[in-house]
Computed example of a mutant assay.
Amino acid sequence: MIMTKPQAVIIGVGDGLSAAVARELARDHDLTLAARSADKMAKLASELGARTVQLDATDEEAVAALFDSLPEAPRVVIYNPSARVRGPIAELSADDVRNAVEVTAIGAFLAGKHAARHVLNAEPIDGVRGTILFTGASAGVKGFPQSAPFAMGKFAQRGLTESMARELHPQGIHVAWINIDGGILNPGRVEPEEKPGSMLRPDAIARTYRHLIEQDRSAWTNEVAVRPWVERF
């Protein structure tokens, strides 16, 4: 009998955190990477032998088609996309705000909906069908000045995750929101000389995703925050 690797889907792939998570999962999962830009995924997909799907995360038909095209129900689904519009509240364009919230919140809902639709059909392994994770930010806990659209989207995403967790945990699906509470040391970025150790390393964050995926269901986490060790709370 040929054993196949479990399916993992990562939506919103770039060269930073999502790439680190993909590399973390590639050794024991068959990966499907999805993003608006095919170019951003090409090199990583070639490196990892991953399948790619060009995708607008706010398009429900496209999101549904992504999950319908998988050879079997995914065991891991990760949603990364978000959008920001900065500016004084009195000057923000409603259309710009609406578009930002569509990506961060509605896209997360669509991914959660169609991921759940398939993961619920997976055969449980030790009572667990799969894991759905959403990449959050500190803006989902505290709104910052001139950043209302990002806070709106991340607060909605956090609420979505909590609701999904309460509904789906008893059905064997682990749902969690990861609060990335700090700047990420993505390729091309450097830490300020006066603040060494102040940024989160993508590969270290990726290991937190791995931990959530492998958590025992008797102690599932539905929300976790990661932040630099030098931060004063």
Rank of each mutant, 00 (worst) to 15 (best):
T58V: 13
A62N: 09
R75Y: 06
E91R: 12
A45S: 11
K113D: 05
D95P: 03
A111M: 15
A83T: 06
A65D: 14
V101A: 11
V103G: 00
I106G: 00
V101I: 15
S93A: 10
T104M: 07
V63M: 15
A108G: 14
A65Y: 12
H114M: 04
G107Q: 05
V97F: 00
T104R: 03
A108K: 09
D56I: 00
L70R: 09
S69L: 10
F109I: 13
L44Q: 04
L92W: 02
A115L: 04
L55C: 10
V103E: 00
R84G: 01
G49H: 07
E102T: 00
D56H: 03
E61K: 15
L48W: 09
A105E: 03
A108M: 11
A100E: 01
L55Q: 09
A64T: 14
A100Q: 04
V101P: 01
A115I: 02
L44D: 03
A111C: 15
T58I: 10
A100Y: 01
K113V: 07
E60F: 11
Q54I: 12
A45L: 03
E61H: 14
V63H: 12
H114P: 07
R86C: 01
I89G: 00
S93R: 07
G112C: 15
P74D: 06
H114D: 03
D59W: 06
T104Q: 05
V103R: 01
D95T: 12
E60Y: 09
V77K: 13
D68R: 14
V103A: 02
I89R: 00
D96K: 14
R84Y: 08
V97L: 08
I89Q: 00
A115Y: 03
I106R: 13
L66K: 11
V85T: 06
L55H: 10
A105P: 02
H114W: 14
V76A: 07
L66P: 12
